[in-house]
Design a protein around this nucleic acid. Structure first.
Lengths: 336, 336
DNA sequence: CTGAAAGCGCTAACAA
DNA sequence: TTGTTAGCGCTTTCAG
């Protein structure tokens, strides 16, 4: 293994000078640095991060935590977030992917070794973990869920607005009677989406069909069951469109329609939320509100890196990103 | 920060003894070890891995590499593999998720810091990377692709057998005329699946419909286009079932049927491969061959840990795991 | 079974 | 702008 000594010897300088060559803010003559770096390169020298960590206490791992990898994590999240992180990850950092629900050995794995943590949070169940990070003074940014906590760093999407846009589209497409299959009770996202629905109904003068306002839990099963219930209503009193709290729910709803012989979108329009990978694949392809995962992840990781760099004052505590409507095939144009 | 010194002082022993308490194979009186561990626990001592690494040269990061996270990685892989790894990951290891196609700084990130690497390989494009790992002497296990290289450690699935089982099922369900939309030319998996198809046709006396033997590339688009082409055939000469090289292809095929007004499975049966997350969600739900990802990942990581532990002789170079058929709704029973 | 001492590769004062 | 020196926290000989 070639060490800093070897480079120093080869370059005819001291260890310190070599060390300085690798520290961007060290005082060193530019020509010296270049010469050293060239020689180091040639020798195949790679700085030993363990040694550096030992003395500087710096860490070179960025942790990304998901609420629960075994179930419930929209799969799209994983690859999207990981990709976004790599987009801006410094060259000597490693990216570690973890699962909050099944984490063991917080001290050794997180506290001792992670320079910062990006939490992709799905539910309040993560709060204990988030607080633990705060207590351990680990730079942390939480994305995907509105924490409603002014001291933390948080990036989330404006779900209310997203649904509101969908409602606008529905109204413009000539829909009048609408229903909704809700999200998990207690979840901020569920409340916000419901709010967007209610605001849309109000502002666009739509009719909320009481029997078609159904509970849900962000699952395919719920989507199927609740849509099946909605389809029991006589066609005349049924809503012409149902807003589903997320794409899983919508996929379930689509299945219910299929099984009931109700064609989508001709007899029933369905809207989702997330733009999960199912959305484009479903039959018919799902019109849905695209959650801005890429933007959240990018903004989050950028914040995080700034925090790690100690630029806390320059970092805004909260970003709210607007989702966008992705129009596919599951909403009928009733004007035709 | 509480260090080994603090523990030593509190326990009235030397640094060395504390160190030994943490090394399972060190010679130390059991009672001493217990006492020290208890005191350490109480003080909140956590061994500093940087320091340990510095002297022992051990690494405490396990790398998992995917061919390409930005596109083409079946999303199911990610969470499944990560979960399987955590199932057996030692408590002080970190799991780092990486992308072969976009990896930078191999030396600092991989060579210097990873104790071992699990490669989830999709294509021969990964070979250069795999060779680099070998050159750097990093314990490596490749899963998901048959490397056909006796010196490496490799876990893959018997795709031929999987398809063969599907063919058996098709034959038993009364299908006679069959077609196939193939995988990416040049890929081992594509060849193996084709082989399974051919073997099935031969052994079960089926009829291969020449016009329904189509090229493909493991994409939804290809599935749609090729199935559309197949559906041009007059119903009488069409196959009653089409085997798709993977689930993406099958989902595309399903869409083509939907758009052509051909009902699945009544008028056309479709089989996939992988058991991706789409499979259960599609309409109708896809009957498919389940790739044994969990088993491959578990076997792979177990092998890898053994290699890291230096037990090379005890590790079998190659495992081949049998896939299983998952019966859902996309194959018709023609006996009815 | 336990302790003393040396040193892993690097950075950070402090001098020069 | 560069070099000298003293550790960072730990493991590992080698004695005892």
């Amino acid at each position: 293994m070639v060490t800093i000594r070897d480079v120093a010897k080869a370059a005819g300088v001291s260890l310190t000078t070599v060390s300085r060559a690798y520290n961007p803010k060290a005082v060193i003559r530019a020509s010296t640095r270049e010469r050293i770096l060239a020689i180091a390169e040639e020798l195949g020298y790679v700085p030993n991060l363990s040694a550096r960590s030992l003395v500087t206490n710096q860490k070179f791992v960025l942790g990304v935590f998901f609420s629960n990898l075994r179930s419930g994590t929209p799969e799209t999240f994983l690859s999207t977030v990981i990709n976004s992180v790599y987009e801006v990850l410094p060259d000597d950092y490693l990216l570690s992917v973890n699962d909050i629900a099944h984490l063991t050995n917080f001290e050794a794995r997180v506290q001792m070794r992670m320079a910062g943590v990006l939490v992709v949070s799905q539910s309040p169940a993560d709060d204990a973990f988030i607080q633990r990070l705060a207590k351990a003074q680990i730079p942390t940014v939480v994305i995907n869920r509105d924490l409603g906590e002014p001291n933390s760093y948080n990036v989330c999407s404006d779900d209310r607005l997203g649904v509101y846009q969908a409602m606008a589209y529905l109204a413009k497409a000539g829909h009048q009677r609408v229903g909704m299959i809700a999200g998990l009770p207690g979840y901020t996202s569920a409340q916000q989406r419901r709010q967007g629905f209610d605001d849309g109904v109000r502002d666009y003068g739509l009719t909320r069909v009481a029997e078609a306002m159904r509970p849900g839990d962000y699952s395919v099963q719920a989507g199927r069951e609740q849509m099946t219930a909605i389809l029991q209503l006589p066609a005349a009193t049924r809503p012409s469109a149902v807003l589903c709290a997320d794409d899983d729910t919508a996929v379930g709803a689509l299945r219910a329609c299929y099984q009931a012989g109700v064609s989508v979108p001709e007899e029933m329009s369905v809207v989702g939320f997330d733009d999960s990978i199912y959305a484009a694949m479903s039959v018919p392809a799902l019109t849905t509100v695209k959650k801005p995962i890429v933007q959240m992840a990018t903004a989050g990781i950028t914040k995080l890196l700034a925090l790690i760099a100690g630029e806390n004052d320059a970092v805004v505590h909260k970003d709210v990103i607007a989702p966008s409507l992705i129009v596919r095939e599951s909403i009928a144009d009733r004007h035709k």
